[in-house]
Nucleic acid binder design. Structure first.
Lengths: 135, 135
DNA sequence: GTAGCTGCAAACTCTTTGCAACTCT
DNA sequence: AGAGTTGCAAAGAGTTTGCAGCTAC
């Protein structure tokens, strides 16, 4: 039983085959898959899984803080396994999502919140850009 | 005819009563109203307006760059009239949205995008926090 | 054994669209 | 007059839920 599975188990979730598969798909994912993406990938190993199970499981994983739900200006959700905090740059031409992290940025965010009298609980920064073509 | 109306008119939109009312509601709004909010407010002056008209008009206004559509981790859209760029802090306890702007932050965003080889077209930063209680 | 989990289908929410009637310009 | 706009109702997308059967513990 791997770390993710252990975490779920300890939180009181039963480790069913479907959940194991969903966790596996998520931890293997190099992108930020949508619910539909996760569903399609899991179906390769278990063609009888229902999409409702995927929705329910992703919801539970988010509650446990194991994954983060994004909505990059789309009308559907994307998920990613939580690692360390990072922000996202979205390539407007390809839809590709690139992760980055900048310390200075993190500090400024925290400071701004504090100056406004708030404790920063969460935050998200998304940059949208086009690749600069080199000649 | 006010500035907003003029802008629409020049873009080829017919200035109907419904559109005038929607623009009025938006420019008066101190918050970031949802489509439903706009609909309800407009209905006070024109009870026969359809919500499809509100959706269509907000869509057009966004295309014209007059308003910005947000989705603050909710499953519906909110709109605001475009003024100068600013970011948002969302009060997790009340749902209140506070606008702010920080020059240093803007510069860092641009720089980060460039360093990754991107021209920054758009970006959005949302801070989520809780009010710090003073004793 | 039983509380929790599953797939299915139906329901729900937010948004978009086809259409005939209407209205700005 | 004519293209654009409207309200309505129906359709669409994404997501959630009720339920009867199934499964991990």
């Amino acid at each position: 039983m791997n770390d993710l599975e252990k975490h779920c188990s300890e939180a009181g979730l039963k480790m069913t085959g479907q959940r194991r598969l969903i966790l596996k798909v998520l931890s293997k994912a190099q992108d930020h898959p949508s619910v539909e993406d996760v569903y399609e990938r899991v179906k390769k190993s278990d063609s009888s899984i229902g999409i409702a199970t995927v929705y329910r499981t992703l919801g539970l994983l988010e509650e446990l803080g194991l994954v983060t739900r994004h909505e990059f200006q789309e009308k559907f959700a994307r998920y990613e396994i939580n690692t360390q905090h990072h922000d996202h740059l979205v390539d407007l031409e390809t839809g590709e999502v690139i992760e980055f992290c900048d310390d200075k940025l993190e500090k400024i965010k925290k400071k701004i919140a504090q100056e406004m009298g708030y404790e920063l609980i969460d935050h998200r920064l998304e940059l949208y850009g086009k690749k600069i073509k080199k000649k």
